[in-house]
């Protein structure tokens, strides 16, 4: 049953009883398809599409061996971005972002458990065959107490800050015990390509999950530098951009804009704040028809007078 409600011009409209014109739905859709197909094929032929080669652990450790080693030691001592990430990878206290008092990350929990020391360093090294010295070093490292390991790690991290690569890895000497051999062997393993295989290996032949190698690579500086050269950094509105001079995802302009301005750009909860904001704005867009004020904008903007000018002209002519 239709209740009688007051007529609101931004919500209601009288049913059209006026004249109609001939219209061909099939023809419109067909012509539109042909036009768009020609445009897409034309753009494809003229501009092609970008395909920048992926960074691998092999290409990273070859192009920037020092950055690789400096990152690897943070994976071993648990100070890398991934090691301190919190959910869903591990349960680092206080690492997760909060929306007000609530941490959605913590609520969801650790579902993709990653122990960077074991998963990125120790376990891959143990897959190397016939490495007696390395096996001894790992056994010594694993057998040592936490304080001893921390001391070796800290010594290596300090030394690695001054590492160079004149054809081979050169790290100033220090009391880093077995860690030196572990790191130089991990670098050799990465440069051979074997680390890529070890980190994608899912324990069976087939695999599609690249979480581990991607997190490892993203912990380094090299990938961010490459992205910066392509103007893809978050602070460069990179989310909208594509490699090279291709147009990117212009439709993400609003999402990436929030990351440029406070409080989003300065908050440690920036990601969840941006997502929360975008969800509210998306909801507002979907609910425009219900929101007084917002739904009056079209009537006030009067752009419709231009769109329907023939209709209004015929009305005033008939009056």
């Amino acid at each position: 049953m239709s209740r009688s409600r007051s007529f609101k011009p931004d919500r209601d409209v009288a049913e059209w009883k006026g004249p109609v014109v001939r219209y061909d739905l099939f023809k419109e859709v067909t012509v539109a398809f042909v036009v768009v197909l020609i445009l897409a094929v034309g753009f494809a032929a003229i501009f092609s599409s970008p395909d920048e080669k992926p960074i691998t652990l092999k290409s990273w450790s070859t192009a920037a061996p020092v950055d690789f080693v400096q990152t690897a030691i943070t994976e071993l001592d648990g100070t890398s971005g991934t090691a301190r990430y919190g959910p869903p990878y591990n349960s680092t206290q206080g690492a997760s972002q909060k929306l007000g008092p609530v941490s959605l990350e913590n609520l969801a929990g650790v579902h993709i458990p990653i122990d960077t020391a074991q998963d990125f360093v120790v376990k891959p090294l143990l897959t190397l065959p016939g490495a007696t010295a390395l096996d001894g070093a790992i056994a010594r490292y694993e057998g040592a107490g936490g304080a001893q390991r921390a001391s070796w790690n800290a010594a290596y991290e300090k030394a690695a800050a001054k590492a160079t690569y004149p054809g081979h890895l050169s790290v100033p000497s220090g009391s880093y015990g077995p860690v030196g051999l572990m790191m130089s062997d991990l670098l050799a393993m990465a440069r051979s390509g074997a680390l890529d295989g070890a980190l994608t290996s899912s324990g069976q032949l087939y695999g599609t999950d690249y979480t581990k190698p991607l997190l490892f690579i993203a912990d380094g500086q090299y990938m961010a530098d490459v992205a910066g050269n392509h103007h893809l950094q978050g602070t460069q509105w990179g989310m909208m951009n594509e490699t090279g001079s291709y147009p990117g995802q212009a439709w993400l302009w609003l999402y990436t804009m929030w990351y440029q301005i406070p409080p989003y750009s300065t908050s440690s909860n920036g990601d969840v704040l941006v997502w929360g904001t975008m969800m509210i704005l998306t909801l507002l867009l979907a609910l425009v028809p219900f929101i007084p004020g917002l739904r009056s904008i079209p009537r006030r903007a009067r752009i419709y007078r231009l769109i329907w000018r023939r209709h209004y002209r015929s009305l005033s002519a008939g009056r």
Binding site: P50, D51, E52, K53, P54, I55, Y85, P87, P88, S96, Q97, L104, E105, L107, A108, G109, V110, H111, I112, L214, L215, I217, A218, M223, V226, A227, H230, L232, G234, G238, M239, E242, T243, N269, D271, V272, V274, W275
Partner: peptide, 24 residues
């Protein structure tokens, strides 16, 4: 499967993880 995918994935994961959806 190229650099775009690597970069977009490793960047976008933070936003999606922050909502809790990244766990699944």
């Amino acid at each position: 499967q190229n650099f775009d995918s690597e970069w977009i994935g490793t960047q976008a994961k933070d936003g999606i993880n922050a909502t809790g959806a990244g766990a699944f």
